[in-house]
């Protein structure tokens, strides 16, 4: 059945089963490959996107519940001021090692900084808790989030 969904400010039609996870629609139907498949069970955070501004694991969102909510993916996050600063901080601190989790990390970090512009370590630990990094670059991720907050103050 065709579903009309809003992704990165544009309207798309995806002709898929109602239970198809959003992640599959993004990667396979809309060819937006920046969002990664990690565990498929909302346990790793690699597939994080924004749904109506909230960081959400796209592997556990059936396409049928999206309705008119806007989905933002890593491809468009640089178009928001916060997302742009997060990307800049990521580059400055050379955060990524293998980079597989990076898209999800940036999406969660941007959602956090949108809600809490100057997060404490505790805020960061809590908001980023669901995003795993097998290279264990957590200290650089935390530093980059603080750097992005600093860029906003500058």
């Amino acid at each position: 059945m065709p579903y009309i969904i809003q992704v990165n400010g544009k309207q798309h039609t995806a002709d898929v089963e109602s239970e198809t996870p959003l992640l599959w629609v993004l990667r396979d139907t809309l060819n937006l490959k920046g969002t990664k498949f990690g565990c498929g069970a909302a346990q790793c955070g690699a597939c994080t996107v924004h749904l109506g501004g909230q960081a959400t694991r796209s592997c556990q969102i059936p396409v049928s519940v999206l309705g008119a909510s806007n989905v933002t993916t890593i491809e468009a996050i640089g178009e928001t001021p916060v997302g742009k600063r997060v990307q800049q901080a990521w580059l400055e601190l050379d955060v990524a090692q293998c980079g597989y989790c990076q898209s999800g990390q940036i999406m969660s970090a941007t959602a956090l900084l949108t809600k809490i512009p100057n997060p404490t370590d505790q805020d960061i630990n809590q908001a980023m808790n669901g995003n795993l990094c097998r290279c264990a670059t957590y200290t650089r991720i935390r530093a980059a989030i603080k750097r992005a907050a600093e860029l906003a103050r500058a």
Partner: peptide, 20 residues
């Protein structure tokens, strides 16, 4: 809840019925 449950069951507690 915010760190472990919210990404699927949502801030509204509404999940994604009928699947979640």
């Amino acid at each position: 809840y915010a760190t472990t449950c919210q990404s699927c069951h949502r801030e509204t507690g509404g999940g994604s019925p009928p699947f979640v």
